[in-house]
Protein backbone atom coordinates (compact mmCIF):
# COMPACT_ATOMS: atom_id res chain seq x y z
CA UNK A 1 0.00 0.00 0.00
CA UNK A 2 1.33 3.41 -0.89
CA UNK A 3 1.28 6.37 1.43
CA UNK A 4 -1.87 8.43 1.56
CA UNK A 5 -1.79 12.18 1.34
CA UNK A 6 -3.95 14.65 3.13
CA UNK A 7 -5.60 17.33 1.02
CA UNK A 8 -7.08 20.47 2.51
CA UNK A 9 -8.60 22.92 0.11
CA UNK A 10 -11.33 25.41 -0.44
CA UNK A 11 -13.98 24.09 -2.77
CA UNK A 12 -16.56 26.56 -4.00
CA UNK A 13 -15.91 28.68 -0.95
CA UNK A 14 -16.10 25.91 1.66
CA UNK A 15 -13.30 24.09 3.44
CA UNK A 16 -12.97 20.51 2.28
CA UNK A 17 -10.46 17.87 3.29
CA UNK A 18 -9.79 14.24 2.49
CA UNK A 19 -7.14 11.53 2.71
CA UNK A 20 -6.43 10.22 -0.74
CA UNK A 21 -4.24 7.98 -2.82
CA UNK A 22 -1.59 10.27 -4.40
CA UNK A 23 -2.56 8.89 -7.82
CA UNK A 24 -5.95 10.54 -7.64
CA UNK A 25 -6.46 13.27 -10.23
CA UNK A 26 -8.12 16.54 -9.29
CA UNK A 27 -11.02 15.85 -11.68
CA UNK A 28 -11.74 12.52 -9.95
CA UNK A 29 -11.39 14.15 -6.55
CA UNK A 30 -14.00 16.74 -7.50
CA UNK A 31 -16.39 14.18 -8.96
CA UNK A 32 -15.95 11.09 -6.80
CA UNK A 33 -14.76 12.42 -3.45
CA UNK A 34 -16.58 15.75 -3.30
CA UNK A 35 -19.50 14.41 -5.34
CA UNK A 36 -19.64 17.40 -7.67
CA UNK A 37 -20.33 15.82 -11.02
CA UNK A 38 -20.80 19.04 -12.96
CA UNK A 39 -17.12 18.91 -13.94
CA UNK A 40 -16.87 16.52 -16.88
CA UNK A 41 -14.09 14.26 -18.08
CA UNK A 42 -13.51 13.80 -21.78
CA UNK A 43 -9.97 12.82 -22.63
CA UNK A 44 -7.70 12.67 -19.55
CA UNK A 45 -4.88 14.10 -21.66
CA UNK A 46 -5.38 17.84 -21.33
CA UNK A 47 -6.87 18.23 -24.79
CA UNK A 48 -10.63 18.65 -24.52
CA UNK A 49 -11.21 21.11 -21.66
CA UNK A 50 -14.37 19.40 -20.34
CA UNK A 51 -12.66 19.24 -16.92
CA UNK A 52 -11.80 22.96 -16.74
CA UNK A 53 -12.06 24.47 -13.25
CA UNK A 54 -10.67 27.56 -11.56
CA UNK A 55 -7.60 27.02 -9.40
CA UNK A 56 -6.64 30.12 -7.40
CA UNK A 57 -8.66 32.18 -9.84
CA UNK A 58 -7.17 30.83 -13.07
CA UNK A 59 -8.55 28.24 -15.45
CA UNK A 60 -6.81 24.85 -15.41
CA UNK A 61 -7.62 21.41 -16.76
CA UNK A 62 -8.26 19.30 -13.68
CA UNK A 63 -7.24 16.02 -15.37
CA UNK A 64 -3.65 17.33 -15.60
CA UNK A 65 -3.34 18.04 -11.90
CA UNK A 66 -2.94 15.56 -9.07
CA UNK A 67 -5.47 16.15 -6.30
CA UNK A 68 -2.52 16.23 -3.90
CA UNK A 69 -1.23 19.30 -5.75
CA UNK A 70 -4.43 21.18 -5.00
CA UNK A 71 -3.63 21.09 -1.28
CA UNK A 72 -4.00 24.63 0.08
CA UNK A 73 -5.61 25.94 -3.07
CA UNK A 74 -8.92 27.55 -3.86
CA UNK A 75 -10.97 25.57 -6.40
CA UNK A 76 -14.14 26.72 -8.11
CA UNK A 77 -16.24 24.33 -10.17
CA UNK A 78 -19.35 24.94 -12.23
CA UNK A 79 -21.47 24.31 -9.11
CA UNK A 80 -19.76 27.29 -7.48
CA UNK A 81 -20.92 29.76 -10.11
CA UNK A 82 -24.65 29.68 -9.44
CA UNK A 83 -26.89 29.62 -6.40
CA UNK A 84 -28.92 26.44 -6.33
CA UNK A 85 -31.24 26.10 -9.28
CA UNK A 86 -31.08 29.74 -10.26
CA UNK A 87 -29.13 30.25 -13.49
CA UNK A 88 -26.34 32.82 -13.49
CA UNK A 89 -26.04 35.37 -16.34
CA UNK A 90 -23.56 33.24 -18.28
CA UNK A 91 -25.81 30.20 -18.09
CA UNK A 92 -28.77 32.35 -19.15
CA UNK A 93 -26.85 33.70 -22.15
CA UNK A 94 -25.85 30.14 -23.18
CA UNK A 95 -29.49 29.11 -22.83
CA UNK A 96 -30.82 32.05 -24.79
CA UNK A 97 -28.29 31.71 -27.62
CA UNK A 98 -28.71 27.94 -27.86
CA UNK A 99 -25.00 27.53 -27.06
CA UNK A 100 -25.68 24.08 -25.59
CA UNK A 101 -26.57 20.88 -27.38
CA UNK A 102 -25.48 17.68 -25.63
CA UNK A 103 -23.99 19.77 -22.82
CA UNK A 104 -20.82 17.76 -22.37
CA UNK A 105 -18.46 20.69 -22.99
CA UNK A 106 -20.72 23.22 -21.28
CA UNK A 107 -19.32 23.27 -17.73
CA UNK A 108 -15.80 23.84 -19.08
CA UNK A 109 -17.04 26.46 -21.53
CA UNK A 110 -18.92 28.33 -18.82
CA UNK A 111 -15.98 28.29 -16.41
CA UNK A 112 -13.83 29.63 -19.26
CA UNK A 113 -16.39 32.32 -20.13
CA UNK A 114 -16.59 33.25 -16.43
CA UNK A 115 -12.81 33.65 -16.33
CA UNK A 116 -12.77 35.80 -19.50
CA UNK A 117 -15.46 38.08 -18.07
CA UNK A 118 -13.62 38.33 -14.75
CA UNK A 119 -10.54 39.69 -16.54
CA UNK A 120 -12.39 42.90 -17.32
CA UNK A 121 -10.40 43.15 -20.57
CA UNK A 122 -11.80 44.26 -23.90
CA UNK A 123 -11.84 41.35 -26.33
CA UNK A 124 -12.63 40.93 -30.01
CA UNK A 125 -14.53 37.98 -31.50
CA UNK A 126 -11.23 36.60 -32.76
CA UNK A 127 -9.75 36.86 -29.27
CA UNK A 128 -12.75 35.05 -27.79
CA UNK A 129 -12.14 32.26 -30.29
CA UNK A 130 -8.48 32.01 -29.29
CA UNK A 131 -9.30 32.04 -25.58
CA UNK A 132 -11.73 29.13 -25.86
CA UNK A 133 -9.43 27.09 -28.10
CA UNK A 134 -8.69 24.77 -25.16
CA UNK A 135 -12.34 23.72 -24.95
CA UNK A 136 -13.60 21.36 -27.62
CA UNK A 137 -17.27 21.17 -28.54
CA UNK A 138 -18.41 18.34 -30.79
CA UNK A 139 -21.94 19.64 -31.28
CA UNK A 140 -22.50 23.33 -31.71
CA UNK A 141 -19.82 24.31 -34.19
CA UNK A 142 -18.84 27.00 -31.65
CA UNK A 143 -20.69 29.91 -33.30
CA UNK A 144 -23.48 30.04 -30.71
CA UNK A 145 -21.03 29.72 -27.84
CA UNK A 146 -19.02 32.63 -29.21
CA UNK A 147 -22.25 34.59 -29.75
CA UNK A 148 -23.19 34.05 -26.10
CA UNK A 149 -19.80 35.17 -24.81
CA UNK A 150 -19.87 38.13 -27.20
CA UNK A 151 -23.24 39.20 -25.83
CA UNK A 152 -22.00 38.96 -22.24
CA UNK A 153 -18.96 41.08 -23.05
CA UNK A 154 -21.08 43.58 -24.98
CA UNK A 155 -23.38 43.99 -21.97
CA UNK A 156 -20.33 44.93 -19.91
CA UNK A 157 -18.98 47.26 -22.59
CA UNK A 158 -16.04 44.91 -23.10
CA UNK A 159 -16.55 43.84 -26.70
CA UNK A 160 -14.14 45.29 -29.22
Amino acid sequence: MVNKVKVNLKLNGERFSAEIDPRMLLCDFIRDVAGLTGTHIGCMTGNCGACTVLMNGRTVKSCTILAAQANGSDITTIEGLSKGLELNPIQRAFHKRYAVQCGYCTPGMIITAHYLLSLGKTLSRQEIREHISGNLCRCTGYQNIIDAIEELLRDKGLLR
Binding site: V2, N3, V5, R15, I20, D21, R23, L66
Partner: peptide, 20 residues
Protein backbone atom coordinates in the same frame (compact mmCIF):
# COMPACT_ATOMS: atom_id res chain seq x y z
CA UNK B 1 -16.23 17.93 5.79
CA UNK B 2 -13.69 15.10 5.78
CA UNK B 3 -13.76 12.04 3.58
CA UNK B 4 -11.69 8.90 3.33
CA UNK B 5 -11.35 7.14 0.01
CA UNK B 6 -10.09 3.76 -0.95
CA UNK B 7 -8.36 4.70 -4.16
CA UNK B 8 -9.18 1.46 -5.99
CA UNK B 9 -10.00 2.89 -9.37
CA UNK B 10 -7.32 5.43 -10.09
CA UNK B 11 -6.56 6.24 -13.72
CA UNK B 12 -2.84 6.07 -12.98
CA UNK B 13 -2.03 2.41 -12.41
CA UNK B 14 1.46 2.55 -10.99
CA UNK B 15 1.32 3.45 -7.29
CA UNK B 16 3.80 6.15 -6.35
CA UNK B 17 4.94 8.06 -3.36
CA UNK B 18 4.26 11.79 -3.52
CA UNK B 19 6.67 14.39 -2.15
CA UNK B 20 6.15 18.15 -2.01
Amino acid sequence: MAVNTGGEKEVIHQPFEYFA
